[in-house]
C-alpha cells in the first residue's frame, strides 16, 4: 500500500527515505529553496524550504517524510517568514541587481519575485569583500554569497578539487579559495568544473560572456522559478 502524507491539504505519496521536499516535488508541489540541489545530499542552511509539520517548523529538504504528516507550506504565515529570510540574505550581501550579470538567471532574485519581496525591509549591512579577478576565465564577486556551499560541495565531492571553503563564523563568515595567496588564479579551478557552474547567485561568474542574453529575456524573466524548477522535475 502506498504511504501518504498531507501537503497543504492534498495527499502526497512517498517512498521510504524520501524527504518532504523530494516527495512534494515528485507530486508536483514547488517548495522554495536555495541551498538544496537534487544531485546533492540536503544541506539545510538557507531555510527557505521551511514548512510546518504538526505546528513545528522543519526544513523540508532534510526531514524524511512520514505517514500521516500534515505539512503546511504555501501559507501566508510560512511565505511571510520565507520572504523575511530572503530579506536577510539581501541586506547581508550587496545585491545590486541592475549591475549583476546573473540578473534574470539568479535564484535569489527569482525567489524574491516569487514571494513578492518588494524591498529588503531591514537595514543594509553593506559588506566589503574584494572581488577576485585573478583567474583567466572566472570571476568571484564575494559580496553576493548566500553561503549555500553548493560550490564548496561540488568542488569537494564531484570535481575532487576542494577549491572552496567557508571560514570565520557568524556574520563574518565568508568564502575562501584553496590557495595561500587567497587568489582563485592560484588554484586548479577550471571553467568546466561543476563548481564553476552551480552558483545560484552571482558570485562565480564567467568572464567575457557578459550580457549575451539581454536583461528581460532571461530564465526567470520569462517564467517564475516555481515553474522553471518544476519543469526540471519532469
Amino acid at each position: 500500500m502506498t504511504r501518504r502524507f498531507m501537503f497543504d491539504g492534498q495527499p502526497v505519496a512517498f517512498e521510504d527515505g524520501q524527504t518532504i521536499m523530494e516527495a512534494a516535488r515528485a507530486a508536483g508541489h514547488f517548495i522554495p529553496y536555495l541551498c538544496w540541489h537534487p544531485d546533492f545530499p540536503p544541506h539545510g542552511s538557507c531555510k527557505l524550504c521551511i514548512v510546518k509539520v504538526g505546528g513545528r517548523h522543519v526544513s523540508s529538504c532534510a526531514l524524511p517524510a512520514k505517514e500521516g504528516m500534515e505539512v503546511e507550506s504555501n501559507t501566508p504565515e510560512i511565505n511571510a517568514e520565507r520572504r523575511a529570510l530572503l530579506q536577510m540574505l539581501f541586506v547581508e550581501g550587496n545585491h545590486f541587481c541592475p549591475s549583476c550579470e546573473k540578473s534574470g538567471n539568479c535564484q535569489l532574485q527569482a525567489l524574491a519575485y516569487e514571494l513578492e519581496m518588494t524591498s529588503a525591509r531591514f537595514n543594509h549591512i553593506f559588506p566589503d569583500r574584494p572581488v577576485d579577478a585573478s583567474h583567466p576565465d572566472m570571476l568571484l564577486e564575494f559580496n553576493r554569497c548566500i553561503f549555500c556551499e553548493l560550490c564548496v560541495r561540488a568542488s569537494r565531492d564531484v570535481d575532487k578539487k576542494s577549491v572552496f571553503s567557508l571560514t570565520n563564523r557568524g556574520i563574518h563568515k565568508h568564502l575562501v579559495v584553496s590557495a595561500e595567496s587567497g587568489r582563485l588564479g592560484d588554484t586548479d579551478f577550471s571553467r568546466d568544473d561543476l563548481a564553476a557552474n552551480i552558483c545560484p547567485v552571482g558570485v562565480i561568474l564567467r568572464k567575457r560572456v557578459g550580457f549575451a542574453v539581454p536583461i528581460g529575456q532571461r530564465i526567470y524573466d520569462e517564467k517564475p522559478i516555481s515553474q522553471v524548477s518544476m519543469e526540471a522535475e519532469k
Partner: peptide
C-alpha cells in the same frame, strides 16, 4: 512610495559605500 532600485536599496550610488 519608494520607486526603483536606488530608493529601495541605494542602487548605483550606494556602490560607493565600500
Amino acid at each position: 512610495i519608494a520607486v526603483g532600485a536606488c530608493a529601495i536599496n541605494g542602487g548605483l550610488p550606494a556602490q560607493r559605500n565600500h
